[in-house]
Design a protein around this nucleic acid. Structure first.
Length: 805
RNA sequence: GCCGAAGUGGUGAAAUUGGCAGACGCACUGGACUCAAAAUCCAGUGGAGCUCAAGCUCCGUGUGGGUUCGACUCCCACCUUCGGCACCA
């Protein structure tokens, strides 16, 4: 058969059109079929276009989705756009184009790029977070949260990005600067909408046990939630009618608490302004602390600072001694109670502070040398100087003292989390409007459900004011409205939602994307949930993953979704680096554009290369030569068409290899070991070339195996060879375990653990007869001669080891 | 500092449960084809040494110990790199 050269330009476009026309990858309606929901993170459609990093996870799950269809599953594999967000808005401001137009343009670009890569997405389910028919439901969920008391407005010291002029969640502050623009972040007090994610801390933590996430993902989530057990203890203020409450994980060291520290923002300071003799000093310290950005305040492990509050003393509840109270910014208002009992002998921070300010250090756990450093070991220490705790191990002492405190009403067991509530307000235009109005009489009132979506008004100017008001605040006719409750005058909330809002539930919308009665029908949710496999970047492990689990759990609790967890399995991919092994960026000049690769080599080559580049979960450097190698492989595949001989079964010579390869490729896809799956197929092609022929049966099987990675070339070859139907309609191939084994195997012979030769044996040959063959090998004879054989180890079909003396 | 991942040829990397280290790709070398080159096909390719040669010997998975008949794999200590968190009491 005469075939022209492999020309991806022609065939890739051709098959993309055919698949679209034949609705090849539309999600089925047959609910008697088992379902499979494969999900990749929807992209932010930036002005830059697709990056070679994008296709890595997309191709990976496209492989899974295509394989599942061939295995008979009803597959949901959707795609959409996380399109609200700052870069679009900034671009819009700069170029005086409406962000909606910018978004449309970027989406169109992304869409055509993705389509050129031949993904089997069901495009009829495309969602876009900026579409009012989508964000209607984002707003609806927010109102549910509000109704259930999980959304509240609070005056909060927030992270304020001085460049973006917006409040940031803690998670968006990276090393003290804004995650997005790297601008300086300072603390600023502002009334913000908050979501009580902390209420779900325990569930978010515990339910990790029932999901199949990569262990490192679970570890990061646990780390972020940061559960710690301890006790809350009350210290009386000497001569006052108040107590300082502290949280400690080391109640056993209570006898060693020699001073206390309040965070600069602690309310008791203002309350006792009149009693504080050195108010000027205290107040200027507070002033200084508040001016510091988080970076300055927490960074650099700087020397501790602080001021003694003269006029306030506390009473240690076990020793009944008066201890001084200090103020210092090493104590954070946002964790625990904003105050600590300081036990310098057994806490490094307190130790450092006590050393600097000459505060007493009392050893209460023996085992270290407190003249040199704090002793923080909790395994081996024994309590001393601690009255009724003396002689106890740390863990026993903790039990005993906590019981004692509870009995006396001085404290109680307490669990604390590092997790903070989620700052949900952004002073920006390009986000979902928060559907609440403020009425002097009724307070915050939700907009009636039937009025959703509350759409963004058209505005001239998207720039937030310097005081940080949202651009929406300038749109009088939009802001001024009437109260849905009493009909009186009211004003709309002008803050918008953060980008994390729309992405917290998009996987639910894919399930029933055109529903205008509900965010998705219960029937569809029951069938499709949970997402069977969700792959995304490690950079979203603490933010998006936690937020979307929170929303999902909330929706579950109020009866709207059937499962407690949204995602059954979560994996993540490594980054693709530039050829110089550095992160790809314009400024480094090492960016590879996927369009160029598709143009020069074809989409199948790009897909194959991205899978072959290295272990999926590890980062990998781009190599143009590696791309060429994959193109060469596909050329070799193409030329198999000239080597086909009759025969629907496998040839005798290659039967074992065929079964081995089917097994290897099938299992490797599932384990995301795409690189070795491709390697196995390359090896098989090398075998075909060595045999100078391939049977029809072998080729068909091979095309099925390769199809998920390189769908266009395999489909084209299927058609050219005149095989029945479409390749995408075929069944996945199976292997016969028995046929993956050779009849004769070569085993290694070792003497004293050193390789001395090999010998061919029958599969599962008896030890005695193997032994006979082994002892006939010259090299073995030579080494064994004149020595006594102490021991012989035979691992069937693997190795024969003789120990001599 | 804490948590996590990793360290293997010239190079990207492989190696189910401890069982022939380096599959597959790149680069390189040689050969075939060609007037020539490119492309393609075939062969070779961890290091050092010995041998006319087939072949043989020794060394080799970050470092140092250990367990074992046998260790890239398990244990202990350490070094380096990369991610994440970081005054969280």
């Amino acid at each position: 058969m005469a075939n022209n050269d492999y020309n991806p330009k022609d065939i890739e476009r051709k098959w993309q059109d055919i698949w679209e026309r034949e609705e090849a990858f539309m999600t089925g309606n047959d609910k008697s079929k088992p379902k499979y929901y494969a999900l990749v993170e929807f992209p932010y459609p930036s002005g830059e276009g697709l990056h070679v990093g994008h296709p890595r996870p997309y191709t990976a799950l496209d492989i899974i989705a295509r394989k599942r269809r061939m295995e008979g599953y009803n597959v949901l594999f959707p795609m959409g756009w996380d399109a609200f967000g700052l870069p679009t808005e900034n671009y819009a401001i700069k170029n005086k184009i409406h962000p909606r137009i910018v978004t449309e343009r970027n989406v169109a670009r992304f869409m055509s790029q993705l389509k050129a890569l031949g993904y089997s997405f069901d495009w009829s389910r495309e969602v876009n977070t900026t579409d009012p028919s989508y964000y209607k439901w984002t707003q609806w969920i927010f109102l549910k949260l509000f109704e259930h008391g999980l959304a509240y407005k609070a005056e909060m010291p927030i992270n304020w990005c001085t460049r973006c002029k917006i409040g940031l969640a803690n998670e968006e502050v990276v090393n003290g600067v804004c995650e997005r623009c790297e601008g300086e972040v300072v603390r600023k007090v502002k009334k913000q909408w908050m979501l009580k994610i902390t209420e779900y801390a325990e569930k978010l933590l515990n339910d990790l046990d029932e999901v199949d996430y990569l262990e490192k993902i679970k570890a990061q989530q646990r780390n972020w939630i940061g559960r710690s057990e301890g006790a809350e203890v009350e210290f009386r203020l000497a001569g006052k009618d108040d107590v300082i409450k502290v949280f400690t994980t080391r109640p056993d060291t209570l006898f060693g608490a020699t001073y206390m520290v309040l965070s600069p923002e602690h309310p008791l300071i203002d309350k006792y302004k009149d009693a504080i003799r050195n108010w000027d000093e205290v107040s200027s310290y507070r002033e200084m602390a508040s001016r510091k950005s988080d970076l300055e305040r927490t960074d650099l492990a700087k020397e501790k600072t602080g001021v003694r509050i003269e006029g306030l003393d506390a009473i240690n509840p076990v020793t009944n001694q008066k201890i001084p109270v200090w103020i210092s910014d090493y104590v954070l208002m946002t964790y625990g109670t904003g105050a600590i009992m300081a036990v310098p002998a057994h806490d490094e921070r307190d130790y450092e502070f006590a050393r600097k300010f000459n505060l007493p250090i009392v050893e209460v756990v023996k085992g270290g040398n407190i003249s040199e450093a704090a002793y923080t070991d909790t395994e081996n220490g024994v309590l001393v100087n601690s009255g009724f705790l003396d002689g106890l191990k740390v863990s026993d002492a903790q039990e005993k003292i906590t019981g004692w405190l509870e009995e006396k009403g001085l404290g109680e067991r307490k669990v604390n989390y590092k997790l903070r509530d989620w700052v949900f307000s952004r002073q920006r235009y390009w986000g979902e409007p928060i559907p609440l109005v403020y009425c002097e009489k009724c307070g915050w009132v939700p907009i009636p459900e039937e009025e959703l979506p509350l759409t963004l008004p058209e505005v001239e100017n998207y720039v937030p004011s310097d005081e940080g008001e949202s651009p929406l605040a300038n749109v009088k006719e939009w802001v001024e409205t009437s109260c849905p409750k009493c009909g009186g005058p009211a004003t709309r909330e002008t803050d918008t939602m953060p980008q994390w809002a729309g992405s917290s539930w998009y996987f639910l919308r894919y399930i029933d994307p055109h529903n205008d009665k509900e965010f998705a029908s219960r029937e569809e949710l029951d069938y499709w949930l949970p997402v069977d496999w969700y792959n995304g970047g490690m950079e979203h492990t603490t933010l998006h993953l936690l937020y979307s689990r929170f929303w999902h759990k909330f929706l579950h609790d109020i009866g709207y979704v059937p499962t407690r967890e949204p995602y059954r399995k979560r994996t993540s991919h490594g980054m693709i680096l530039g050829e110089n092994n550095e992160k790809m960026s314009k400024s480094r000049g090492n960016v590879v554009n996927p369009d160029d690769i598709v143009n020069e080599f074809g989409a199948d080559t790009l897909r194959t290369y991205e899978m072959f580049i290295g272990a999926f979960d590890q980062s990998a450097a781009w190599s143009q030569l590696g791309v060429k190698g994959c193109r060469r492989f596909l050329e070799r595949v193409w030329k198999l068409m000239d080597m086909v001989v009759d025969g629907d079964s496998y040839s005798k010579e290659l039967e074992v290899k065929m079964h081995q390869t089917i097994k290897k490729v099938s299992q490797d896809y599932e384990a995301m070991k795409f690189n070795t799956a491709v390697a196995a197929m390359m090896a098989l092609v090398n075998e075909f070339y060595a045999a100078k022929q391939v049977t029809r049966g072998e080729l068909k099987t091979f095309l099925v195996l390769l199809n998920p990675v390189a769908p266009h070339i395999t489909e084209e070859m299927w058609e050219r060879m005149g095989y029945e139907g479409r390749l995408y309609q075929q069944k996945w191939v199976s292997w016969d375990e028995e046929k993956t084994l050779e009849n004769t195997v070569e085993i290694a012979i070792q003497v004293n653990g050193k390789l001395r030769g090999t010998v061919l044996i029958e599969l599962n040959e008896e030890k005695d007869s193997v032994r006979e063959k082994v002892l006939q090998v010259d090299a073995v004879k030579k080494v064994v001669e004149g020595k006594s054989m102490v021991k012989e180890i035979y691992v069937p079909n693997k190795i024969y080891n003789i120990v001599v003396k």
